[in-house]
Design a protein around this nucleic acid. Structure first.
Length: 289
DNA sequence: ACACGGACCTGAAGGC
DNA sequence: TGCCTTCAGGTCCGTG
């Protein structure tokens, strides 16, 4: 499920269940996801209080009252669901677990929070807060695209001197945090930029970011904000913690629309699918240059 | 620097 | 009905 809008949707769904609440019981139903779960994770979490639930790039960050952070990544197929606890459904006596339910948190808020991940590309880690910024997982993460930091100048700087494609540059988490295959395709279409164009062509000119870079920064922010407002995109999985589908997928202009007409007014082009860096790229060759 | 293939996993969908 | 291939929202690693 997870690009920035989906992860942010999950964060908002988990916040009332987890922020300010304690882990009363934790069940790990297998020892590993993509990586082994943290040593004695259940023990170490039990009794801890979540001070805040944050997000950085595609990582969920539960700040704990002992100075550690529970870092959670959803991989390709991870999801959380939040249910009301009842006596028959506490961890350790979880009689109605679904396939691929791997970790269960029983919170003092009365919520039962279950992590489900069929492909197990997700992972969890416990890291001291003081080491988070320099931890290998976080150290090289680029600018957050929501908020005010991302603008044409930042983009132009990030792209300077890069011969790699715009698609690859935008997918690179070291430059901009949280974009993935869908939203890169969508942002580039909004900006009328070819995913094949060299990133360096948007770099600073004469000390100022190009108009294209400024436009792209605005379109990235817009598409992400709209997607968050829609509760993310739901393709094969549920994005939201209450089981409801996000609906931004109905707004895709190019993603997964190979062979269909370009939705830019007056363009008349046809959406193409190509492969870049091993991933499908959808774009309109007519209006994206 | 960068492209590419492969790795990690499961499941859905399509072709035959 | 099956069996096979391909593809999927992510990231990491090795090899050119």
């Amino acid at each position: 499920m997870p690009e920035l809008p989906e992860v942010e949707t999950v964060r908002r769904g988990l916040e009332p269940a987890m922020a300010g609440a304690r882990f009363e019981a934790v069940e790990t139903r297998r020892p590993d996801l993509r990586f082994p779960l943290p040593e004695r994770m259940a023990e170490r979490l039990t009794g801890r209080r979540v001070e805040a639930l944050g997000r950085r790039a595609k990582y969920l960050l539960a700040d704990l009252d002992n100075g550690e952070v529970l870092v959670m990544h959803l991989g390709m197929s991870g999801s959380f669901r939040v249910e009301e606890r009842d006596e028959s459904r506490t961890p350790g006596a979880f009689t109605r677990a679904l396939a691929h339910d791997h970790v269960v948190f029983a919170m003092s808020s009365g919520a039962l929070v279950t992590y489900n991940d069929p492909r197990r590309f997700g992972f969890m880690a416990l890291i001291p807060r003081s080491e988070l910024a320099t931890h290998p997982l976080m150290r090289h993460i680029g600018v957050e695209p929501l908020g005010n930091e991302l603008d044409g100048a930042v983009l132009a700087q990030a792209f300077a001197g890069r011969s790699t494609s715009l698609k690859a540059a935008l997918m690179d988490q070291r430059l901009i945090a949280g974009l993935g295959n869908i939203y890169v395709c969508e942002a580039l279409h909004r900006s009328g930029l070819s995913p094949l164009r060299a990133a360096g062509t948007l770099a600073t000119r004469a000390g100022k970011p190009t108009a294209r870079a400024t436009r792209l920064a605005e379109d990235i922010r817009a598409v992400l904000q709209e997607a968050v407002a829609a509760g993310g995109s739901s393709l094969r999985d549920h994005a939201q913690t209450n089981g409801e589908l996000g609906y931004f997928q109905h707004t895709f202009r190019v993603y997964d629309r190979e062979g269909e007409p370009c939705l830019r007014g007056g363009c008349g082009g046809t959406v193409r699918r190509i492969t870049q860096n091993g991933r499908s790229t959808f774009y309109c060759p007519r209006c994206q240059r």
